[in-house]
């Protein structure tokens, strides 16, 4: 440790600090903490604002906790006989089932694209990927019109069906399958007489599991956070996911300020499941898959 690599732009006074503190890279640490504070501001704000009554929300200093958390929760639960909780359950249903189906379809497609050579392979892959480039509104409006023709508009299917196919998911699953499944194992399974399906089921799928958890998480967040598709497809309040529900509540706030308190409390509760999922499954956020940096 003879080199002084503290480098970037360490303060001049660094040499006066005790050795223990000198071993800290102050400039990068402080820079990162500033970023962390910026990113946490709205989260801290909503944590505090949710504790305030309607009157306190607009009158007391915003970072000073109020006394209304329990009554806010009570009001939110009482709103149209607990409609907020219906929205939460709907979101959990759309995101949970949609992401599960998406991971399954992505997994099997990614496996086929990574582990077989066949005519049209790249054409199919590129066509599926081109789906990423389609602006969602461009898709959602004709999707809605077609759903309406099929009698499915304003149904759970109308949100679930278009959420299953994920070009990102197929892309990730393909990279993951290419990097994690040795061809020799597949060959061995075939020589043992296993069918292609059985080879996939019992050899490839278990090896792809961590990658598929990643696909599931990405898609879960994408569907939970989706606003446009349900906004266009649904008219019935009781089928709304929480994003669309909160938006309709916010629109009411223009007339009734008490709705703002519900929006703030509802916003807090709506992000809790995602934050829990996010923190508890951290090791599965394999963004390295996105940059194609998987090593076999």
């Amino acid at each position: 440790m003879t080199q002084d690599a503290t480098g970037v732009s360490a303060p001049a006074s660094v040499s006066a600090l005790p050795a223990r503190l000198r071993r800290i890279g102050w400039a990068p640490t402080v820079g990162l903490l500033a970023g962390a504070v910026y990113c946490l501001i709205p989260v801290v704000w909503v944590l505090i604002a949710a504790t305030k009554s309607t009157a306190q929300l607009f009158s007391t200093f915003t970072l000073f906790p109020g006394s209304g958390l329990l009554s806010n929760l009570h009001d939110l639960s009482a709103y149209r006989n607990g409609e907020f909780w219906t929205w939460m359950l709907n979101s959990a249903f759309y995101a949970g089932v949609g992401a599960l189906l998406s991971a399954a379809v992505s997994g099997i497609s990614g496996y086929a694209l990574a582990k077989y050579r066949f005519a049209g392979r790249n054409a199919i892959f590129n066509t599926l990927l081109a789906g990423v480039l389609m602006p969602p509104v461009v898709l959602a409006i004709p999707q809605y019109l077609l759903m309406a023709k099929a009698g499915l508009a304003d149904s759970y299917w109308s949100v679930l069906l278009p959420s299953i196919l994920s070009p990102y998911g197929i892309y990730l699953a393909r990279i993951y399958a290419a990097g994690s499944i040795p061809d020799s194992l597949l060959e061995a399974s075939r020589i043992d007489g296993a069918s292609e399906w059985r080879t996939f089921r019992s050899v490839a799928l278990p090896m792809m599991a961590p990658g598929l958890v990643t696909v599931f998480l990405f898609q879960f967040v994408a569907i939970w956070n989706n606003f446009l598709l349900p906004f266009i497809m649904l008219g019935d309040d009781s089928k709304f996911p929480v994003t669309v529900g909160l938006f309709t509540l916010l629109k009411q706030g223009a007339q009734a300020p008490s709705a703002y308190t519900l929006v703030v409390t509802g916003s807090l509760i709506s992000v809790l499941p995602l934050i829990v999922l996010f923190l508890s499954l951290q090791r599965y956020w394999r963004l390295d898959l996105l940059s194609g940096a998987v090593k076999s």
Binding site: L32, L33, G35, A36, V37, C39, L40, P42, V43, W45, V46, V221, W224, N225, F227, T243, V244, L246, F247, L250, V263, V264, S267, S270, V271, L274, I275, L277, F278, L279, Q282, W285
Partner: peptide, 19 residues
Amino acid sequence: SRIAIFLPYAIPGVVASLL
């Protein structure tokens, strides 16, 4: 810091805009 800066990714665009 890494988790805090990545955290907003988990928050829906609608909720982020509200906040």
